[in-house]
Amino acid sequence: MSDLCAGRIVVITGAGRGIGRAHALAFAAAGAKVVVNDLGAGLDGSASGTDPAAEVVAEIRAAGGEAVVNGDDVADWAGAQRLIATAVETFGGLDVLVNNAGFLRDRMLVSLGEDEWDAVIRVHLKGHFAPLRHAADYWRARSKAGDPVDARIVNTSSGAGLQGSVGQGNYAAAKAGIAALTLNAAAELARYGVTVNAIAPSARTRMTEVAFAEMMAAPATGFDAMAPENVSPLVVWLGSAQSRQVTGRVFEVEGGRIALAEGWRHGAPADKGARWLPDELGPVVDRLIDQARPAEPVYGASG
């Protein structure tokens, strides 16, 4: 147990299993009061008939912590509003929102159906925006009332969103959108005392255990680099008062490794000072590419 987040009130979406569960337990161990949100859905978002959030809450309470279950759909506007209200009404406020919920419906683009696209974009991208929007309303109202606000949002992007991932066009697009949303929210919410960051984690979860079974298998002995629990220390720190100077950043996290993703940057321009002719542009583009850093490879791309 530590007191890094003592008394802080934290909402975590998709916290019934995997990385979200690890976040909930880690925040509770750091002294936070936790709203554990989970629909109990299957890997593809279908109903599973289980209540993993209740199990996580029971585990936190058994260890002497404070937690409550929320079963709302985070991509439903009213459901996301109820989720934020659960924290305020149960614990008296809100300090941290960790957006983590999501599922997969993987297909190559030529096989990807409209429903599979819509479902993944909805749960990941809208499922980040809707809780963020209602949390921002709460913090803005407090700030305008003259109350001190020292709040945090931690979003969950992915390497797929930063570099792309073959067979995951819907997921990659959603996760790229989350990274951009993080930058926007950091710029817009700073005036209210809110920082916004994102993580791009690599860990063994239901979403990765099939695609990366061999690479992500737990070792017989030694450090388990793919354990979901490795991701949570950074998220807990980002949710603490110590991180107030850090905002608008995306961190890659895997095992004991933490890196800051640099994202899109302006490259050196070629400026003619007038409109280019199409026939002129071949060597110009070649020169720009030669001057630029090599692009990161898309996950799963051959050669």
Results as ranks from 00 to 15, higher is better:
9 I>F: 09
36 V>R: 01
193 G>I: 08
59 E>Y: 04
79 G>P: 04
69 V>R: 13
49 G>W: 07
36 V>L: 03
99 N>T: 11
86 T>D: 11
134 H>K: 06
139 W>R: 08
91 F>Y: 14
47 A>R: 15
270 A>W: 07
296 E>P: 11
230 N>S: 03
131 P>G: 08
149 V>D: 01
24 A>W: 03
90 T>I: 00
292 A>S: 15
68 V>N: 04
155 N>Q: 11
81 Q>A: 14
299 Y>P: 05
24 A>C: 02
128 H>S: 14
126 K>P: 04
265 R>T: 13
55 E>S: 13
268 A>C: 03
223 F>C: 07
79 G>H: 05
106 D>S: 09
73 D>P: 07
195 T>N: 12
246 V>S: 08
263 G>A: 05
78 A>T: 08
202 S>W: 11
5 C>T: 15
191 R>N: 06
49 G>N: 04
80 A>W: 08
108 M>N: 12
4 L>F: 07
235 V>K: 00
229 E>W: 06
146 G>E: 01
261 A>D: 13
228 P>L: 01
80 A>R: 09
171 Y>D: 00
41 A>S: 15
302 S>I: 14
20 G>E: 05
40 G>L: 09
287 R>I: 00
231 V>H: 03
43 L>G: 09
171 Y>G: 05
232 S>V: 06
146 G>T: 01
145 A>W: 05
188 E>T: 09
301 A>G: 03
276 W>H: 12
22 A>E: 01
134 H>N: 05
34 V>S: 02
10 V>P: 06
189 L>V: 04
4 L>Q: 13
